[in-house]
Amino acid sequence: KTVHVNGVQYDFDNPEQAERFAKEMAKKAGLQIQFHGDQIKIE
């Protein structure tokens, strides 16, 4: 899974790890999470 945070890309082999990371980042920055198939976007 790939997580995009403000244009920066983070790759994870483990989907659960990717989602946990995305939730942490979104919570910290007060941003929205969008799921697009294999990609998670935080903007």
Score class of each variant (00 low, 15 high):
A22W: 08
V8A: 05
F21V: 06
N14A: 05
K1D: 03
A29W: 06
E19M: 14
V5M: 10
M25Y: 04
Q32K: 12
Q9L: 08
M25T: 05
T2V: 09
A26V: 03
G30E: 08
A18R: 02
I40Y: 00
A18E: 06
E24H: 02
Q17I: 09
Q34P: 00
I42Y: 02
A22K: 03
K23V: 10
V5G: 02
I42E: 08
V5N: 02
Q17M: 10
Q17H: 09
G7N: 05
Q32F: 00
R20S: 14
Q39N: 08
Q39K: 06
A26D: 06
A22T: 03
H4F: 15
A29K: 10
N6I: 03
K41I: 15
G30R: 02
E16C: 15
K41L: 14
H4Y: 14
D13T: 03
D11P: 09
Q39I: 14
P15W: 14
G37Q: 08
H4D: 07
K28M: 12
E19Y: 07
M25S: 03
N14T: 14
R20W: 05
E43F: 10
Q9D: 09
N6V: 03
A18T: 04
A26H: 04
I33E: 10
D38K: 00
I40M: 05
E19G: 01
G30T: 02
R20I: 11
G37S: 07
V3P: 02
Q32I: 14
H36N: 13
Q17G: 05
P15H: 12
F21A: 06
Q34M: 08
G37I: 00
I42K: 06
T2H: 13
K23E: 14
E24I: 04
Q32C: 15
D38M: 06
E24Q: 03
E19R: 07
Q39F: 11
V5C: 15
H36P: 13
F12W: 02
Q32W: 00
N14Y: 07
V8M: 08
T2E: 03
A18C: 10
E19T: 03
M25R: 00
M25C: 15
H4R: 09
I33D: 11
P15S: 13
K41C: 15
Y10F: 11
F12H: 01
E43W: 06
F35Y: 13
I40A: 07
D11M: 06
L31A: 11
R20V: 04
G30P: 01
E19V: 09
K1E: 04
A22Q: 07
F35Q: 13
I40G: 07
I42G: 07
D38G: 03
E19C: 15
Q9H: 09
D13E: 10
K27E: 12
G7K: 05
A22P: 03
I40N: 06
V8N: 05
E19S: 02
D38I: 02
A26M: 10
D11E: 12
I42V: 11
K1G: 06
K27N: 11
K23I: 10
G7W: 00
E43M: 09
L31E: 05
I40F: 01
I33M: 02
H4I: 15
K27M: 07
Q9K: 12
Q17E: 14
Q34V: 11
Q32H: 11
D13S: 06
F12D: 04
D11K: 05
M25L: 11
F12K: 02
K28H: 12
F35K: 11
Q34I: 14
M25P: 00
F35G: 11
G7L: 03
N14K: 03
E16H: 07
G37D: 14
E16P: 00
Q39T: 13
G7E: 04
K27R: 09
F12M: 04
T2M: 06
K27V: 09
E19W: 07
K23P: 07
H4S: 10
K1M: 14
V8R: 10
I33Q: 04
P15G: 08
V5F: 12
K1W: 14
A22N: 03
A18V: 03
I40P: 06
A22F: 12
V8W: 07
G7R: 01
K1R: 12
G37N: 10
I40W: 00
H36Y: 13
E16F: 05
L31R: 01
E24D: 09
E24M: 00
P15T: 11
K28C: 15
I40H: 05
T2G: 02
K23C: 15
K1Q: 09
N6M: 10
K41M: 13
F35C: 15
I33G: 07
Q34N: 12
Y10M: 07
P15D: 12
Y10G: 04
A18W: 05
Q17P: 01
G30N: 09
F21I: 05
V3Y: 00
G37V: 02
E24T: 01
H4A: 07
E19P: 01
E43L: 11
G30S: 05
G7F: 01
N14W: 06
H4W: 15
A18M: 04
H4Q: 09
N14E: 10
D38E: 10
R20N: 13
N6G: 10
H36R: 01
I33H: 05
V3R: 02
G30K: 03
G37P: 13
E24L: 00
V3Q: 03
Q9E: 09
T2R: 09
K1I: 14
E24R: 00
D11S: 06
H36L: 14
E24S: 03
E24F: 00
V3I: 08
V3H: 03
F21Q: 05
E43P: 07
V5E: 01
Q17R: 01
R20Q: 13
L31I: 08
A26I: 05
R20A: 13
Q17W: 08
E16V: 07
A22S: 01
K27G: 11
M25Q: 10
I33V: 10
K27T: 12
Q39R: 03
L31P: 04
Q34A: 05
E43A: 08
K41G: 10
K28F: 03
I42A: 06
E16R: 03
A22I: 13
V3K: 02
K28R: 07
P15L: 12
G7H: 02
K27Y: 01
I42F: 06
Q9G: 06
A29Y: 15
Q17T: 09
D13H: 00
A22D: 08
Q17S: 12
D13I: 05
H36Q: 13
K41Y: 15
A26Y: 01
K1S: 12
Q34H: 14
V3A: 04
K27L: 08
Y10D: 03
F35W: 13
K1A: 11
I33S: 05
K1N: 11
G7M: 02
I40E: 08
A18D: 05
E16M: 08
G37L: 00
E43I: 12
Q32T: 14
V3G: 03
A26N: 05
F21T: 03
F21E: 07
Q34S: 12
D11V: 10
D13N: 04
K23G: 07
E24P: 00
N14R: 01
D13L: 05
T2P: 03
G30F: 02
A29P: 11
G37A: 03
K28T: 11
F12V: 01
K27A: 13
N6L: 12
Q39W: 11
E19A: 05
Q9Y: 08
I42C: 14
E19Q: 07
F12T: 03
V8G: 04
P15Q: 12
Q32S: 12
L31V: 13
E16L: 06
A26F: 02
F12I: 04
A26C: 14
K23Q: 13
Q17D: 14
I33A: 01
Q34D: 14
E43N: 09
Q9T: 10
Q34E: 14
K1H: 13
A18Y: 06
R20T: 08
G7P: 01
A22H: 05
D13R: 00
E43Q: 09
D13C: 15
N14G: 05
N14Q: 04
A29T: 14
Q17N: 07
H4V: 15
G7V: 03
K41S: 12
H4E: 08
F21G: 06
G37W: 00
V8I: 12
F35R: 12
M25N: 04
D13K: 00
I40D: 09
Q39S: 12
E43R: 05
A29N: 12
A26P: 00
F35N: 12
H36S: 06
E19D: 11
I42T: 07
L31D: 08
A18I: 03
K27I: 08
G7C: 09
G7D: 05
K41W: 15
I33Y: 00
H36G: 10
H4C: 15
V3C: 07
N6K: 07
Y10T: 04
A18P: 00
F21H: 05
P15V: 12
Q34R: 09
H4P: 02
L31Q: 06
E24W: 00
E24G: 00
K23S: 08
H36E: 15
M25I: 12
M25K: 00
R20E: 14
Q17V: 08
F21K: 01
H36C: 15
G30Q: 05
V8Q: 07
Q9F: 07
Q9M: 08
I33R: 00
R20M: 11
A26G: 07
A22R: 04
Q39E: 13
Q39G: 09
L31K: 04
F12G: 03
K28A: 13
E43Y: 05
F21D: 08
